[in-house]
Design a protein around this nucleic acid. Structure first.
Lengths: 294, 294
DNA sequence: ACCTTTACATGAAAAAATCTCATGATTTCA
DNA sequence: TGAAATCATGAGATTTTTTCATGTAAAGGT
């Protein structure tokens, strides 16, 4: 409970009494008296005329009053603004995400968040894994969705693990089988994401020591699905991306099983702006209580 | 040497570095760092992004900046004003006046002013109209009392209008008449101020097209009165000079009526030292509320 | 007049805030 | 990899602010 001498002065002038001002400021009359003394010592002249029934401004004190009001109004404004930022009436959140998250999670999260905090400015950037990490490193986004692990030094919480599946054209010779041996990717025409865009399938194949027979590469996940549909080859896709779609493809479990872990990285996590922290909370809540949670 | 956290914040933002700000504020880098921490604790979010080469504002910090600037500008203003008022403790006021003012007004004004501002050094120069204007022009006085109008380029406020009267020896042939025709000055022996000392009587006579029959000239008003008393001649004097005196003379209204306007000229009026402005205020107050005001 | 009440002042000591010192951690540059 | 530069941090010293306990002065009632 620190009292600024300016506040004390203004209050005393307003109420015309040290005692009343002290009450109003919840401190002792002595404290207010000392404050005024300090003020007067600094000024080098008295600002108040003391008398029996309280005090009133000297002419010099009156000259100071506008400046004091300006200081106090500035402090008031300061508090208003910081409260408004704290209360999420202000601020912005820049989110970077790759396709599956941008398609399956963000619309819902954003809708809910925007409803609760209509004054926060949301910005969504869409890219591949590499883009998102780049943006994080640059500081051009506050929150980035990534495939874990990540080398960037910033706090990153795992959100869910997502199985990888083989996708085949419907009339593919292995289409009938419920499981698909990863090793076959070495023979079958394989449609891949660009190297920079993909970590998951690549990691799975490397882990199994399989060198895929890459026929096509693209940066767009849905383009791959379309190509598979047309029988141009097979590919590997995470479950989240396939969910809810009705493509004319066959989906088979991989053998051995492979997965990715989707994580959320928060830039300058501990010191993130309130709006950013809150948005991160929303994401976690959204994912943990049933991704499709109302 | 107390450093406000607002000051620290603004300086850091301005210089983009805690270290430089610390130098600028003559305190340690540690102090600045603590200040910012306190600020951030109060706000509940970070206001600066720390990096190798200094720091920069967060978006939230930027929002606070205008309020901080307002606070600092208020403090600056506060110091300016108090320094200017303090000027009264160190200032001096040099006043030039002619006889009637020096006798009838200044003692009272000076007494009151000295009581209220005992530290202000007052200097009073006594002279005639010409002397005062000379001193004003030279800048050797701050405030000069003059008979308006004045040609000098400096702010000059009219204080009062003062009627001119004829003064006659008690046994003069016209002594019985309540009014005295100005034209008679052409015949009667006339006692005049030196040309440089007088404007008022001269102007009145000229306006009436009367050429006075000047027998004696002196620079001292009271010498004229004494000479009139002795029956050496007649003269013209302003009311203020005659007030409160009990000379053995006859005072008659002039026909046509004549007057002078006493004004106060303030050198460099707008930029005058606080003590000078204040003294001028006192004079005006003194004159307006009854010249003999308590 | 004299006491009571009310209001501000003051001095010492406690409490709090602020500053410095020493040192740590991190990043950049050579 | 080491040196230099920059910000952070913790402990202790310093300064400021607050409280507590009175003191002083003026106004009002009796």
């Amino acid at each position: 409970m620190p009292i600024s001498k300016y506040e004390a002065f203004a209050k005393v002038v307003e109420l015309g009494s040290l005692t009343l001002a002290a009450d109003a400021l919840s401190c002792t009359q002595s404290a207010v008296s000392h404050c005024i003394s300090v003020l007067e010592k600094e000024c080098g002249f008295s600002v108040l005329i003391r008398s029996r029934a309280g005090v009133k401004l000297t002419e010099e004190g009156a000259r100071l009053l506008p400046a004091v009001r300006q200081i106090l109004s500035g402090m008031e404004q300061f508090n208003q603004i910081s409260a408004s930022v704290r209360g999420l009436d202000a601020g912005s959140v820049r989110v970077g995400a790759f396709t599956s998250v941008a398609v399956h999670w963000l619309p819902g999260v954003i809708k809910k968040f925007q409803h609760d905090y209509p004054d926060v400015d949301l910005k969504l950037l869409n890219g591949d894994y590499h883009d998102v990490e780049q943006w994080l490193a640059e500081g051009s986004i506050d929150i980035g969705f990534v495939s874990m692990p990540i080398h960037l030094k910033c706090e990153c919480v795992p959100l869910m693990t997502d199985r990888l599946f083989a996708i085949l054209p419907p009339d593919h010779k292995y289409a009938g089988y419920p499981k698909f041996p990863l090793a076959l990717c070495a023979d079958e025409p394989f449609i891949s994401l660009l190297e920079s865009s993909d970590h998951d399938a690549r990691r799975a194949l490397e882990a199994a020591g399989v060198k895929p027979n890459i026929k096509f590469s693209t940066k767009d996940d849905y383009a791959i699905i379309a190509m598979v549909e047309q029988g141009l080859g097979i590919s590997i896709m995470p479950e989240l991306l396939l969910k809810g779609r009705h493509d004319n493809i066959r989906i088979s479990e991989l053998v051995p099983e492979a997965k990715r872990t989707i994580g959320m990285a928060v830039a300058r996590s501990g010191k993130a702006a309130p709006a950013v922290k809150r948005f991160a909370d929303y994401v976690v809540k959204w994912v943990t209580l049933g991704e499709e949670g109302k």
